[in-house]
């Protein structure tokens, strides 16, 4: 894993300050149906390459971030505050 994670509010900080939640998925609508919800709660892609994850800057600004990480190289290509729109893939 990356040693440093760029926080859009605090700058590059050690990964120990952060907590990862997992895939940055959009929450389905309440009436989206069981299949969509099972997908959201349990099923995860495990791609080799680009991946977007929710990270929490727990010991920093306490904002939730969407971090773009390459699962093969661990390279982090960017991060943004979670209020900014999720990418088209996540939606």
């Amino acid at each position: 894993m990356a040693s440093l994670i760029p926080c859009p509010h605090c700058g590059s900080r050690p990964k120990e300050e952060f907590t990862v939640k997992g895939a940055a998925l959009a929450r389905p609508a309440p009436d989206a149906g069981t299949a969509a919800w099972i997908d959201y709660v349990y099923l995860r892609d495990n791609p080799r390459g680009a991946y977007e994850e929710y990270w929490h800057h727990t010991s920093g600004c306490r904002r939730w971030l969407v971090v773009s990480r390459n699962t093969a190289t661990h390279e982090i290509s960017g991060s943004r505050d979670v209020v900014l729109k999720l990418s088209a893939e996540a939606l």
Binding site: Y54, H56, W64, V82
Partner: peptide, 13 residues
């Protein structure tokens, strides 16, 4: 606390 922050920031900003 962390869960509530996720809900407030990520789910229902």
């Amino acid at each position: 606390m962390t869960h509530l922050e996720f809900c407030a920031q990520g789910l229902w900003p």
